[in-house]
Nucleic acid binder design. Structure first.
Length: 439
RNA sequence: GCGGUAGUGGCGAAGUGGUUAACGCAUCGGAUUGUGGCUCCGACACUCGUGGGUUCAAUUCCCAUCUAUCGCCCCA
């Protein structure tokens, strides 16, 4: 049997309504914040990711899906979304468009060659947003609010926002020197990984889980202590705005994030949900004021975030979030071959009118037809056999009320439409958490 | 890349070195030749992830491999 590739999975019909619900929520919130969708290729020149994400990050050094094409070019399946978006903004000169601040979002598959586990796959999906052209902390605050709103719109309440600032290039450089100086006599007390990080990516030592409790790290200098005046101001303003927007956050002085390109604000949103295990970070983001310039674009600042959609869905599972209920309006029950012509005509009429219609294609028993109608969650079942054909009528049963009526065949569509217009006693799309009718 | 656990019908899940591989759910047929959801009866795995080895005999033991899962690393 052919099997799927390691770390990939199929989104089956039973799951897709949940995906659609999440995607719809994302698009709706994006509209509210006035972000426009951008769709970039899922592969790019390998060099793009090396230059943007950072040569020494794990993502680039050991997790990319690389391949050579027939023209001997080096390609990489995108491991994250920002690089491609930045490339596109530069290449299409979106920074020169009549809208001075470009606010973009994307959604789609990403690829990392990793050992799969729950909530982590080789082909996974991200939803992310990027805003270009402003260094205002108001935009940082908007980003964080945007991310939180997506979670709120999905009714996820148990979330924590952590923020920190790395400052501008000057701050980052000052801090790095201070950290290296501080750690130098203590390197041998750090874990093995951190001894490597000391040389390659010292900032990441800060949020090492092994050394977390150690005195060395607790007393280590933090990025916030080395902010330049402007950087400090930026961060102070962000905090003020978040307070005014009534967005709960905690300042995590050890938060540094894994990608090289961040400056100033960095943030993470965690779900406090046991089912996520080690993968509780739903969203990570921050400001990257130098990346556009580093990739040969103009010197314009930017800020963004990315969500892992699989993790979002996992978190939703724990709050028992369901996608939209699947249903059809009509299940046409055809009894006897001689009735199929008329039935085909009636089905077509209803579908042209926009009704969701299905029927039994296996000539199974009436019992089975009812069972099929039930599993399709049909509101109405229409029964058409020899007797009805004779009388030019059709029996139609409302599965919700159990009431069955006999009507003229040419009244079928109108009958269903009329019934659907009547207010339902059921509370189907209730938005109110405290509604007594919802169970 | 490293370490632990697991792999039996569509799903869940027993089981054993020896020849009919329990059971539950789902599905299908019938009782009820045109009104389902309850009940009863019946059907449903040339086969126990894949490949190889040990053995007279392997689903069971051994090795490899694949996949899943948990943790590490890292990240979303």
């Amino acid at each position: 049997m052919q099997r799927k590739m390691k770390g990939t999975y199929d989104i089956l019909p039973s799951e897709s309504s949940r995906w659609q619900a999440v995607e719809r929520a994302i698009r709706r919130v994006s509209k509210i914040y006035n972000y426009k969708e951008i769709r970039t290729p899922i592969f790019e020149q390998s060099e793009l990711f090396h230059r943007s994400v950072g040569e020494d990050t794990d993502i680039v050094s050991k997790e990319t899906y690389d391949f050579k094409d027939r023209g001997d070019r080096d390609n990489t399946l995108r491991p994250e979304g920002t690089a491609g978006v930045v490339r596109s903004v530069i290449e299409n000169k979106l920074y020169a468009a009549d809208i001075p601040v470009q606010k973009l979002y994307y959604m789609g598959p990403m690829f990392r060659y990793e050992r799969p586990q729950k909530g982590r796959y080789r082909q996974f999906h991200q939803f992310g947003a990027e805003a270009f052209g402003s260094n205002s902390p108001l935009l940082d605050a908007e980003m964080i609010s945007y991310a939180v709103s997506v979670l709120k719109s999905l009714k996820l309440k148990e979330v924590t926002v952590k923020i920190n600032s790395l400052g501008d290039s000057q701050s980052k450089e000052d801090y790095k020197i201070a950290l290296l100086n501080y750690l130098e006599p203590n390197v041998k007390h750090l874990c093995k990984d951190c001894q490597t990080r000391y040389k390659t990516n010292p900032l990441r030592i800060l949020d090492c889980k092994v050394d977390k409790g150690s005195l060395v790290l607790k007393e280590a200098p933090k990025p916030l202590d080395y902010l330049t005046k402007e950087s400090q101001e930026h961060f102070d303003n962000l905090v003020k705005y978040l307070d005014q927007m009534d967005i709960a956050y905690t300042i995590d002085k050890a938060l540094v994030r894994g990608l090289d390109y961040y400056t100033h604000t960095v943030f993470e949103v965690d779900a406090n949900v046991s089912s996520l295990g080690a993968q509780k970070t739903l969203c990570g983001g921050g400001r990257y004021n130098n990346l556009v310039n580093d990739l040969d674009g103009p010197d314009i600042p930017a800020v963004g975030f990315a969500f892992g959609i699989e993790r979002l869905l996992l978190a939703l599972e724990s709050i028992d979030y369901k996608g939209d209920a699947e249903y059809i309006h009509l299940f046409m029950m055809i009894l006897g071959d001689d009735q199929k012509e008329d039935a085909a005509k009636m089905i077509q009429r209803c579908r042209l009118g926009g009704l969701y219609v299905d029927t039994d294609f296996l000539d199974r028993s009436m019992k089975s037809k009812f069972n099929q109608a039930e599993s399709h969650n049909a509101r109405f079942v229409a029964i058409y056999g020899a007797n009805e054909k004779e009388a030019n009528t059709i029996n139609i049963k409302d599965q919700e009320s159990g009431i069955q009526e006999t009507i003229e065949t040419d009244q079928l569509y109108t009958y269903i439409m009329t019934k659907l217009m009547e207010p339902s006693s059921k509370c189907e799309t209730c938005e109110d958490d405290d509604c007594d009718d919802c169970s």
